[in-house]
Structures are given as C-alpha cells and as structure tokens.
Design a protein around this nucleic acid. Structure first.
Length: 422
RNA sequence: GCGGGUGUGGUGAAGUGGUUAACACACUGGAUUGUGGCUCCAGCAUGCGUGGGUUCGAUCCCCACCACUCGCCCCA
C-alpha cells in the first residue's frame, strides 16, 4: 500500500518527462502565436463553483468529484475541469475590464473519480483554452483552428472533427420538447438509462450506443433543423470560417456536450486509433456560464484536450523520440587522494556549463569507464595518483580513445576548443 | 457504478499440487598491476500482486481484496 500510488494516478518518470515537455512546449508556442496567455488557477475551488458552473445533474458533479470539507468547514473540490475556475478568476480579477476579448489558456491536473482505464485516469492533465467576451462566430472558429493545429503540430494524422450546434436558451427548450414528444410513445422500448435521460437530458438519448435505442431514435428531429435564427446564422458562419481556414469537419447532429454550460457551437476531435477513449479534445461555446457564476453577461468559447490521450497517440504512432542522453564529460577519480580534486574539477566543469557526470561510488577504473560509456560521454577525465601528483588530468576521447595529459588549469579551455558543448 | 481478462525478479517472459522457480535483457563483479564499447565467466526472486482457506504439501485449486487491462458508462 505504501509503495503503491492511489488508484488511477500515474507517475511521470524521467524517461517520459521529455515527451511532456515537448508537448507543453508546442502548446506554449502555439498559444503565443494565437495571442492566448497562460493562467494558473488553484487545484481546488469551492464545491459550489462546479455545481453551478458544470451543472448539478451532470455525471461529473453527481458522482465524479473529489470533494471534502476543510478544517474551516468549507466545501472544497479538486477541480474536475478548468473552465469554471478560469471564469471565476476572470471575474474575480475583472479581466473583462482590460480587453473586449480575453484569451486564456491553461495546462494542469484535473481530478475525476471514475473507473480507470486506458486514457482515463483519476488525476489527468488537460490543456485548455478559453476566449471570453466576444459572441461572434469567428472566435468559435479561432478556437477550433487552434485545437486542430495543436494536434496537427504534433504530427497526428487521421483526426476527425465533429461539429454541431446545441442551440441556445431561445431554441433549445423548443427542440427539447419536440424530442420528448418524439420519444414519449417509445419510452418503453428505451433502455433504463435513456428513460432517465428522457426527463433530464433527452438529447443524450440520441447518442446512446444501444442498438435498440439507436433504432428508436431514427427519424428523431434534428437540432440543426430547430435552431433559432440567431443560432442558425452563427452556425453557418462558423462553418464558413472553418472552410476559409481549410479545416475539414463533419456535421454530427447527435454530438452533445456533457456539461450543461454549452450553447451553440459544440465540437469534438477524435483520434480513432485510441479505441474507447478516443476523444482527444472537445469544447464549444458557453455563453451562459459567466452570468451563471455571477458575472456580467459575457459570451465565451473554449476547449480542452486530454494530454494523457495525446501522449498515448504520440507513443503509439512513434511520433516523438526523446533525444538520447548524452554527457559532455565524465570525471573519474581513482583512490582516496583524487576524490577532492576530482570533485572540485566536476564543480568547475558544471559551473562552466558542461553536462558533467561523476560516479561517486568509488568503484574501479574499469567500472567507472563503463559508466562513462553508458552516459555517452564525449570525454572521460581521469584523475589518479599520478595525475594528482603532477597536477594534470588525463583526458580520454571516448570515440577515438586518444589520451592526453592536460594541466588542470587548462582543462576547461581544452574542452571548449574541442567543442564538446552544443 | 456494471461486465470480461490478467497479475511470476528492474524488464520481457517459461513453468509445475511435492526436492535447488527455466531462459533472455538489464544490473553487479571478474578475465593478473590504472582504462569503456565485443566476447567469456560468475552473482542476482527465502519468492511467484496482498490476505485468508483447501491439502500431508500450493506459485500452480478456492474465496476476498488490491492493481492493471478491455468493454459499458462518462468524458478530455
């Protein structure tokens, strides 16, 4: 128990960190060119924020949150997603006062109590983007292009972008009612889940995987046929913008977002080779959320990408090979008398910016040479009794096996001349 | 939350109700004095996810738990 991390958590070990850094680097440079600025919000928030923001009846809020009461009696929840928190921060610090359009992005851990499986962990990482303050369809398109470019920039191919509009408070209730009317006399044929969805969120019946439900939902009214004029023209414009950017998409009138705050545009990007957890990024417009949380009416769009899934995709596609570990120099000390001079040499090498290693375990020369070899060192610097006595260091070129003795003062210069460093 | 599969050393794995749990890689040491990468030799699980039970005896049979995994669900 003590030597095992909690279920659904994952250590990112040194040999994998490179890949994370690589992806994070891509994110930061991409966001920079789109004018999105990084924001870092707390890992926990008041539980009420998520209840209000995400929606009381969503699975996330109902059964997946890590919630607890702190010592001061506050209801606290580890963030299950970051949109609500970003909006909270946006409001708390009145960022809306600075620009008409606020562009934010974040990278961080999220927490959901869910059954772990490939690509789904209890602590997972998301990269997300939020654009707050502008209602126009160009912002939707900007966000979608950013999401697509992010995945493309990593070399992922065969991504699918699904697009839909889920309406707004003007037209969604009407659609909802039409859907309920459609399903009302079919209720008995629906699965148990769908029967409860009928009341709570009938749109979810449409993407039920059960064949019987699928068959019953044939011929159901489509949301895109029921959009109000505002939503319809918005949707058309988003499509036009995407086409102008050369972004391929497919319309999916059954695409429903799980969180209550979505309005109008909804989209999802899948990477099919991942199997069951193939949704890599998803998002959409959430014009009602800011007000819901207590701010001024503020339209907004955003998306989030699951980084573990991105990592899986990179891994299975062999898209990122970490650079091999390569030391510049490996310092070898032989005998007691050499230890101190060798250590001080090591320090000055590092101070000079070399990647310098040393085996501190006091093993045989042969063993230390093996270490140097394994570390891919360009040079081995050997300090034994003779060298200490003569004030020199033996410099061995690990590629050519050439050896020269060099005065201790001249070592760094000799290495600089040899252009060891990158 | 529901259903299926799996669990042997650092890794990949063979194996059997009964004496010393294969093999490979990795790791450590050595092959004459202070020199790597090849080769050769040796060492390396008192232990077969954890805890119970059955049995004269269990890594191998049963139960529970834990973890991983594949689906469902949910989502990123």
């Amino acid at each position: 128990m003590l030597t095992q991390g909690p279920r659904g958590t994952k250590d990112i070990l040194p040999d994998t960190v490179d890949r994370w850094l690589y992806v994070e680097q891509k994110i930061r440079t991409l966001c920079r060119s789109y004018g999105y600025q990084e924001i870092r919000t707390p890992i926990f928030e008041h539980t009420e924020l998520f209840q209000r923001g995400i929606g009381d009846t969503t699975d996330v809020v109902e059964k997946e949150m890590y919630s607890f009461t702190d010592r001061g009696g506050r209801n606290i929840t580890l963030r299950p997603e970051n949109t609500a928190a970003a909006v909270r921060s946006f409001l708390e610090h009145k960022l809306y006062a600075e620009n008409a359009l606020t562009r934010l992005f974040y990278i961080g851990s999220m927490f959901r109590y869910d059954r772990p499986q490939k690509g789904r962990y209890r602590e997972f990482h998301q990269f997300g983007v939020e654009a707050l303050g502008v209602a126009g369809p160009a912002v939707d398109a900007e966000i979608i292009v950013l999401a697509v470019r992010f995945l493309e920039s990593l070399g992922l191919k065969d991504l699918t972008l699904s697009l839909n509009s889920v309406g707004d408070p003007a037209c969604r209730p009407i659609y909802r009612e039409r859907l309920q009317n459609f399903f009302r006399d079919k209720l008995n044929g629906l699965c148990e889940d769908c029967r409860s969805r009928f009341e709570r969120n009938p749109m979810r019946i449409l993407d039920c995987k059960k064949e019987s439900c699928q068959r019953l939902s044939e011929g159901a009214p489509e949301i895109t046929d029921c959009l109000c004029e505002d939503c319809r023209s918005h949707f058309e414009a988003v499509k036009a913008y995407l086409e102008s950017a050369g972004i391929q998409y497919s319309l999916d009138s059954r695409l429903v977002r799980g969180l209550d705050y979505y309005t109008k545009t909804a989209f999802e990007i899948k990477y099919p080779p991942l199997g069951a957890q193939s949704a890599v990024a998803g998002g959409g417009r959430y014009d009602g959320l800011v007000e819901e949380i207590g701010g001024p009416p503020t339209p907004a769009v955003g998306f989030a990408a699951g980084l573990e899934r991105v990592m899986l995709a990179l891994e299975t596609q062999g898209l990122y090979d970490p650079p091999p570990r390569q030391a510049d120099v490996f310092v070898i000390a032989l005998g007691e008398a050499a230890k101190i001079p060798a250590f001080s040499l090591l320090v000055s090498l590092r101070d000079a910016g070399f990647l310098a290693l040393m085996d501190h375990s006091g093993r045989s020369l042969k063993a230390q040479m093996k270490q140097a070899d394994k570390a891919n060192a360009r040079f081995a610097l050997i300090l034994g009794e003779d060298e200490v006595r003569d004030g020199v260091v033996t410099r061995r070129d690990m590629r050519t096996s050439e050896q020269v003795k060099i005065g201790r003062q001249d070592i760094i210069n000799s290495l600089l001349c040899a252009e060891v460093k990158d």
